[in-house]
Amino acid sequence: MKYMNTLLILLSISFYASTFSIALAKTTENPKPSESIVDQNTTWNTLLKAYYFEDKTIIESDELFDFSAPYRAEDGAMVPIEIVAKKPQTEEHYIKSLWIIIDKNPKPLAGKFKFSPLNGKADLSMRIRVDAYSPVRVIAETNENKLYMVSHYVKSSGGCSAPASSDAATALARLGKIRLKTSLLKSFEQPVQTRLAISHPNTSGLQKDQVTTLFIPPHYISKIDVKFEGKTIFSAETDISISENPNFKFYFVPSKAGILTTEITDTKGNKFTQTKKLEATIN
């Protein structure tokens, strides 16, 4: 029943919040934007926006992509999120990077993911840690250096300090194992769904050892590079807000059969690689 508590806090807070807004609505003729929404964005407005993007303009719009995240996290250490692009990646117009930012995490930037026209579509799924009730933001940067943002408020707690799902010895034994899967290639010039899963504890530095109860040092994947026929199709710089056993879904457009390779680097300088032959299953 460990995480029932999370749920309960959620329930009670939303209860108080809704009571509050009822009271507010009754006493004010012209209700202002809800107090709590202003609060939610304080960290972003006062700190994070300038830290990551200086004085650049960010357009809050879902014109380029949809972003989905659970309103209530079932497991704060493993919150699935998904970005679905609304426009194809073309040489003229494409998303060149996606930033994932969790305002209230100790290190808010979960990762910066690079895309190109080779992706066909800039869709991306992954699982993140969410440490406290927090906005989760996706910011897309286009090839024209325009920034678009969609954010969701996620109710979660303790995602960064939650113990790993398997003990250290087991995790170490399979450290760096990689699964690289692609959907059936029905035709060239079509985006192929690619799933990259890496066995790695991705320790955040905020988790405690189950035996000694001392903090486990941070050890996480910091770089991802996936190439098709020697050309980078997907790359990222990642941090502790990516869940253990990182798992990404993205797309790329193969123009012919070829070799898919991936190189993963972690903060201890370990490099893990995997290759996969991509063959047409077409007539």
């Binding site: 079932e74 497991d75 493993m78 799902s165 398997s166 194992k177 899963a197 066995s199 056993n245 798992n247």
Partner: peptide
């Protein structure tokens, strides 16, 4: 139910 799935998924993934 969903949380059970999430936890068991973590256990079985690797």
């Amino acid at each position: 139910h969903k949380r059970n799935i999430s936890y068991i998924f973590s256990e079985l993934e690797w």
